[in-house]
Amino acid sequence: MRFTKPSVAIVDQLALLQARGMLVPDVGHALHCLQHISYYRLRAYWLSFEQATPGSGEHRFTPGTSFDDVLALYVFDRRLRLHVMDAVERVEVSLRGSWAHHLAMKYGPHGYLDQAIYARADHYDRACQTLISEIGRSKDTFIVHYLDKYDEPRHPPIWMIAEVISLGQLSKWFSNLKFRSDRQAIAKPYELDEKVLISLTHHLTYIRNICAHHGRLWNKQFTVTMMMPNSPAPLRLAINPASERRIYNTLAALGYLMGIIAPGTTWRQQLVGLVDSCPLADEAVMGFPLEWRSQPAWTTPPAAP
């Protein structure tokens, strides 16, 4: 089939939405949003307001649908992304530190480069090549200083590497460690089994990439999911096993980790407020279980720092 849809000017885009039944209380503001957000991006947020018209194949909007409703949902998703990224950043920095400290103390500053401590040589080789490329591109003062001053070892110590390695690369170095004792030691500060933490790290890499590219979170079905934890109890009870591909379990895991990494944080309380601020964001679509607000994970006051 050949693509034949024509390009449509912004003013005509708005006219099309109105012809399909969307209310536009402020035409000037709607035109501004279509200019600076785009029709195609906003389209993902008005899909839930559409209803099929029998016979024609054209989707009209549910009576009463307003452009302001679509924009409210878009703004909610944007705020949710920013809130998630705030937690992912804290988790990423903490994981880097736990990984680097354990390996440095057990194997020395450059022991992370020893192929013998990794399970798969092919994965190790690919990870090394990627890391070498990242080091070569780095303009960080400490990396430049090391490379200028030292000839041996060729690559910086692990605590410097931890400052430039990406979360995706970190998850690969971590998961490829040969000895479970090493993986478990890295996971110990979070009171998680190493398999759960490795799975969660892969998942958070995926989530971080969605956020970094300004993708939807609120109603997205994830392709990279996290392992359902059996412990500790606070996390297990917060998880909704019936919606493993939705954002809720990610939020529950981040809330748990934030309680460990940043005692006293109000991240979870802020999340509750954010969800309450947008009734249009269907909680069931996001994977929230019934009565989730009454669960200890969301009602317990933050611990003192």
Rank of each mutant, 00 (worst) to 15 (best):
M1N: 07
R2A: 09
K5G: 05
A9L: 12
V11K: 14
D12K: 07
Q13K: 09
L17F: 06
G21W: 10
D26R: 14
V27K: 15
G28L: 12
G28I: 03
A30C: 01
L34E: 04
L34H: 03
Q35P: 02
Q35C: 08
S38P: 04
Y39E: 06
R41D: 08
Y45G: 01
W46A: 02
S48G: 14
F49E: 12
E50Y: 01
Q51W: 06
G55Y: 01
G57C: 05
F61H: 08
G64C: 01
D68Q: 06
D69H: 14
L71S: 02
A72L: 14
A72Q: 15
L73D: 08
R78G: 11
M85P: 06
V88S: 03
E89M: 13
R90K: 10
R90Y: 00
V91N: 02
V91W: 04
V93P: 00
S94G: 11
L95D: 00
R96W: 02
W99M: 11
W99F: 15
H101L: 14
H102D: 02
H102T: 02
H110L: 08
H110S: 04
G111F: 10
Y112D: 04
Y118A: 05
Y118Q: 06
R120T: 08
D122M: 02
D122R: 09
D122G: 01
H123G: 11
H123Q: 09
H123M: 09
Y124G: 03
Y124L: 11
R126S: 13
Q129D: 15
L131W: 05
I132T: 09
I132F: 13
S133E: 11
E134C: 03
I135D: 11
I135V: 15
R137D: 09
S138Q: 06
D140H: 15
F142G: 07
V144R: 15
Y146V: 12
K149R: 14
Y150G: 07
D151I: 07
P153I: 01
P157Q: 02
P157V: 00
W159H: 08
M160C: 09
L170S: 11
F179E: 13
K188Y: 12
E191D: 15
E194P: 00
E194V: 06
E194K: 00
E194C: 13
K195D: 14
H202W: 11
H203D: 01
T205F: 05
Y206K: 00
C211L: 12
G215N: 05
G215P: 03
W218A: 04
K220Q: 11
K220R: 14
Q221F: 14
T223Y: 07
M226F: 10
P229K: 04
S231R: 03
S231Y: 09
S231V: 02
P232K: 10
P232V: 10
P234F: 04
P234Q: 06
I239Q: 12
S243P: 00
Y248E: 12
Y248S: 11
T250C: 15
A252F: 01
A253N: 08
G255H: 04
G255R: 03
Y256K: 01
G259A: 15
A262W: 06
G264V: 09
W267I: 07
W267N: 05
Q269H: 15
Q269D: 10
Q270F: 04
L271C: 05
V272E: 08
C278I: 03
L280D: 12
A284P: 01
V285P: 00
M286G: 14
F288C: 01
T300G: 00
P305G: 12
